[in-house]
C-alpha cells in the first residue's frame, strides 16, 4: 500500500479536525478526498506529509511511518499545498532549480516527468513567479512538486478557484502522471471532479462518510431520485418544501433534484400538485444520482 491510515485523530483545542480516519491508497491509484472547506482535508495532508503530528492512530506513506521515519517520507513525496507555495520573487526557472537542488537532483535528470507541463510555462521561464497568472502558477507548483520524482504526490485543492477550462486541463495532466507510476492523493471541494478519480473518500466534519469507486458510490444511493423543473424555480423550491411526500429537494443546475419519502410515489401526483399551484412547463422525470446527491444525503444522515 502506498498510503495507510489507521484510526488517525487530530484536534485543535476542542475542535475535532479528524475523527478516527482509516483508509488505504493502492500504488498507482488516483485517490480523491472530496469534501467542503473545514472537512479536515488539509489537516490530513499535513499529517501525511509529516508537517503535523497526529494525536492518535498510525499512518504510513510509501512504507515509512509518518512519525518515526519522517525524513524518508520527505524524500519520497511531492506536496502541493492549497496556498501558492513558490517563491514569488524567483523566476519560473529559478524556482524549479531551487526545488531540484534541495532534493539533490537536477531539472535535466527528471525532465521527462515534467516535460508535458513545463513546456506550457517555458516561454515565461524568466518571469517572476509572483507575476504569473493563476493557471501558470499552478502548473509551476506542480512541476516543483514533481522534480524529485516522488513516489506519492499530495495535491491539496489544486483546482479551487480555478475556472472550468483550466480545471479540465489540470485533471488531464493528473491522468498522464498516473501512467508514470505515481500514486496521487488529491483533494477537491468540486464534486464533479470526484468522477475522475479511481476511488474517493467523502469527508465532512473530520469524518469519512463513504469510501469506494465513484460508480459504486453513485449506485449506493438508497432512494429513487427525480429531476423536476417549472417556469418559476424559486416558487418550485418553496412548493416542494411543503409538499407532504418530499424527503429532499435541492437545486441542481436547471432542475431540482427531488427524493420522495414514500415508496409508492408517482410522478403524476407531483405534476398534478404543481399544476394546482399554477406552475407552467412542468417536467418530472426519474434520473440518476450524482456524487453530490450522495454526499448531501449522507451528510444529512450524519447530522
Amino acid at each position: 500500500m502506498s498510503i495507510i491510515l489507521n484510526n488517525i485523530s487530530k484536534s485543535y483545542n476542542k475542535v475535532k479536525a479528524l475523527d478516527d480516519i482509516s483508509f488505504e491508497v493502492k500504488p498507482g491509484e488516483l485517490f480523491g478526498l472530496i469534501g467542503p472547506d473545514g472537512a479536515g482535508k488539509t489537516t490530513l495532508f499535513r499529517i501525511l506529509t509529516t508537517l503535523l503530528i497526529q494525536d492518535g492512530g498510525k499512518a504510513s506513506v510509501a512504507g515509512y511511518d509518518v512519525q518515526k521515519q519522517y525524513k524518508d517520507i520527505r524524500n519520497h513525496v511531492g506536496y502541493m499545498p492549497g496556498r501558492f507555495s513558490l517563491y514569488q520573487d524567483l523566476t519560473v526557472e529559478e524556482n524549479l532549480n531551487f526545488f531540484a537542488t534541495i532534493f539533490g537532483t537536477t531539472i535535466e535528470e527528471n525532465y521527462d516527468l515534467i516535460k508535458d507541463i513545463y513546456i506550457q510555462i517555458e516561454p515565461f521561464k524568466a518571469r517572476r513567479a509572483g507575476k504569473l497568472s493563476g493557471g501558470m502558477k499552478q502548473k509551476l507548483a506542480l512541476c516543483c512538486a514533481l522534480i524529485h520524482k516522488p513516489k506519492v504526490l499530495f495535491l491539496d485543492e489544486p483546482t479551487t478557484g480555478v475556472d472550468p477550462v483550466s480545471r479540465k486541463e489540470f485533471w488531464e495532466m493528473l491522468k498522464r502522471l498516473q501512467q508514470k507510476d505515481i500514486t496521487i492523493l488529491v483533494s477537491t471541494p468540486y464534486m464533479d471532479e470526484a468522477e475522475l478519480c479511481d476511488r474517493i473518500a467523502l469527508i465532512t466534519n473530520g469524518k469519512i462518510l463513504q469510501i469506494n469507486t465513484p460508480e459504486a458510490i453513485i449506485a449506493s444511493f438508497p432512494k429513487k431520485i427525480y429531476k423536476v423543473r417549472s417556469s418559476n424555480t424559486y416558487q418550485l423550491i418553496e412548493d416542494l418544501r411543503i409538499y407532504p411526500d418530499t424527503h429532499s429537494a435541492y437545486p441542481f443546475g436547471e432542475y431540482l433534484h427531488f427524493t420522495p419519502k414514500s415508496e409508492v410515489f408517482r410522478s403524476m401526483d407531483l405534476t398534478k400538485y404543481l399544476e394546482e399551484r399554477h406552475h407552467k412547463e412542468i417536467e418530472v422525470k426519474e434520473t440518476v444520482a450524482t456524487i453530490e446527491d450522495t454526499f448531501m444525503d449522507l451528510s444529512k444522515a450524519h447530522e
Partner: peptide, 8 residues
C-alpha cells in the same frame, strides 16, 4: 460559494 459544502 467557493469551497462551501453542497447543502449550504
Amino acid at each position: 460559494t467557493g469551497g462551501v459544502d453542497p447543502i449550504t
